[in-house]
Nucleic acid binder design. Structure first.
Length: 550
RNA sequence: GGCCCGUUGGUCAAGCGGUUAAGACACCGCCCUUUCACGGCGGAGUCAUGGGUUCGAUUCCCGUACGGGUCACCA
């Protein structure tokens, strides 16, 4: 018997590989166009690191007029979770990372290089595995899990490199007849690559991010087809990225040590290898040290966390871009209004060691992003967020849309907008005192410098009696505040007070603070004039009376 | 442990043979301001370590320490 017959015995129904080579022709793309792919496995929530990688995939494809595709790597049925694919789709959609090709919903896909669900590509992998077997480049292995484990222990005890290679690759030299016999006897087996590599030889690899790296060649006879007939990651990666004509493989740097294997696989299969870019992981600080953000321990590892917190997706995107290329910040300052789509991302500007994911900085980015929103946009976004996470806020926003928009519009849309909202979940706090039912329930007034009740009441009485007129424009209102201050023995300008503090009881700021606290029960609020305008005459009057009569 | 990779202020980082070692976040101070915020100005704070190479090393080489990744029929 020869290899050809062995291959036929193992995969009797597999097609010739020429069939697939013809089925998937070269892409007709312009010079320099990059084909990238996001290839997650649906094993749980989408990790912020995966999002980071796919953001880079998307940008690279887009800025080169290439193609960004989504391939789902569902070859491990044991780890697969329900709704995993939908979660991936939702994350991409939320972050505006539409794919040009690949899986687009739980049931549909678009593009000519599919299927894009690895579980549906079983016959393709098997065809290539069969081809390898028929050429003597792969072979069935009958070792049991226990045998392998035992081998590993032996190797460890003897302090030699563990693995299935060289003399340890027992089934490699079984002989075709023995293999056939075992198969005919119904013994279970998997398919291994017959690695042509030698550990004492080096392979050079040029990584788009990490530069030149040298590794020992791979000499492990790794598994390519598992007992369930599905391929391992490595084998699927080589076949899929070849057949889908992926030019640039962007992935987390936990893969970098597999590069020798992958390049070998491409060579054995007769494929041209893609270019690789290995991205450093996002880290988190813990006890003064750094560690990779962990799915299990860190809520912020899940992209859904940002959604829940109300941190806008575009803020997360900006922050991630900033980690990717630190010149992004400079670009943003020079182009405050441009879409991040216009930022040109460069792989060689990416850092090689893991960056700490800094929530404080993210929030700062988020403040800036939100400060540029129009009042209508922030209303819509807040409402959308509230519908999902805050029923009370939702009611408030919906009850009187115009009123809410006016509140959200305070000091917004101007050259130097307020930057006190970092996430949509801050909205409630920032507007609730504008609503009587909530205001009335709020706790006591906390004054600053002027806290004597008699004095406060006098200020209020004078204000209502001589100065309060809701139809005043801002300048008039302010001038009247100054007059009021003067009348009561306070300086009408802070400067005057600073010059001769002993001459006055205080200054205009102290008077304003009294009014602010009485009207809002807050010491920190945006522009008081605007607040009063939005509340209107009755409410302002009522709030003042509330205090006077309490 | 083997193999890869890395280490610039608290954090993200630019620089990569000669620089007062950029910038951003955070922090502190001052100014502006009716408060807060914004904005403006200023401050403190860094090249892991030991050896080389060199007229000169943050930048190049070697060692050490520390950190990360990886060594599955998981991706």
């Amino acid at each position: 018997m020869d290899y050809k017959e062995l291959a036929d015995l193992i995969f009797p129904n597999a097609k010739e590989i020429s069939y697939y080579e013809e089925l998937y022709p070269e892409r007709n793309l312009s010079e320099g166009a990059k084909v990238t792919r996001f290839a997650p496995s649906p094993t749980g929530f989408v990790h912020i690191g995966s999002l980071f990688v796919s953001l880079i995939d998307k940008k690279l494809a887009k800025q080169s007029n290439g193609t960004f595709l989504l391939r789902v790597e569902d070859t491990d049925q044991k780890r697969e979770v329900e709704g995993g694919v939908q979660g991936i789709l939702d994350a991409l959609k939320d972050f505006g990372l539409q794919v040009d090709e690949g899986v687009v919903s739980e049931k549909e896909e678009i593009g000519k290089y599919g299927p894009y669900l690895q579980s549906k590509r079983k016959e393709i992998y098997q065809a290539y595995a069969k081809d390898l077997i028929s050429k003597g480049l792969a072979y069935p292995c009958f070792c049991t899990a226990e045998e392998i484990e035992e081998k590993r222990l032996t190797q460890e005890n003897a302090k030699i490199r563990p693995g299935y290679y060289g003399v340890w690759a027992k089934c490699r030299n079984l002989g075709i007849d023995n293999m056939v016999e075992k198969i005919n006897n119904g013994e279970k087996y998997i398919i291994r690559l017959k690695s042509p590599g030698r550990e004492d030889k080096k392979i050079k690899h040029h990584d788009l991010i990490r530069g030149n790296i040298e590794f020992p060649e791979n000499d492990q006879d790794i598994v390519i087809i598992k007992a369930d007939g599905l391929p391992t990651y490595h084998f699927a990666h080589a076949i899929d990225d070849h057949l889908m004509k992926v030019t640039h493989v962007i992935r987390g740097d936990e893969w970098i040590s597999s590069v020798p294997l992958h390049i070998q696989l491409f060579q054995v299969l007769g494929f041209k290898p893609p270019k690789y870019a290995h991205i450093a992981p996002l880290m988190k600080e813990e006890d003064g040290g750094k560690r990779k953000i962990s799915k299990r321990k860190d809520p912020e590892a899940a992209v859904s966390y940002y959604h829940k917190e109300g941190i806008p997706e575009d803020a997360v995107t900006e922050y991630l871009l900033n980690i990717a290329n630190s010149n992004f910040e400079e670009w943003r300052r020079a182009n405050p209004e441009k879409s991040t789509d216009e930022f040109e991302l460069a792989l060689n500007k990416m850092g090689v060691s893991g960056a700490l994911f800094d929530i404080v900085k993210l929030l700062d980015v988020s403040k800036n992003v939100i400060s540029k929103y129009s009042k209508e946009k922030i209303y819509e976004d807040s409402l959308k967020w509230a519908k999902a996470y805050d029923a009370e806020l939702k009611t408030v926003l919906e009850n009187d849309k115009d009123y809410a928009i006016r509140i959200l519009g305070i000091e917004r849309g101007i050259e130097k907008p307020r930057k006190d909202i970092a996430k949509l979940s801050d909205i409630k706090y920032s507007m609730e005192y504008m609503y009587d039912d909530i205001f009335d329930k709020q706790s006591n007034y906390e004054f600053q410098k002027v806290s004597d009740e008699k004095e406060i009441k006098q200020i209020l009485e004078k204000y209502v009696e001589n100065y309060f007129d809701i139809s005043d424009d801002k300048q008039m209102w302010f001038d009247k505040m100054k007059d009021l201050a003067e009348e009561l023995g306070y300086a009408r300008e802070v400067k005057l007070f600073k010059k001769e503090p002993e001459q006055y009881k205080g200054h205009i700021g102290d008077i304003s603070m009294v009014l602010r606290v009485v009207i809002t029960k807050r010491q920190n609020t945006p522009d008081l004039y605007e607040i009063m305008q939005i509340l209107g005459k009755e409410k302002v009057q009522k709030r003042i009376n509330n205090y006077l009569n309490k």
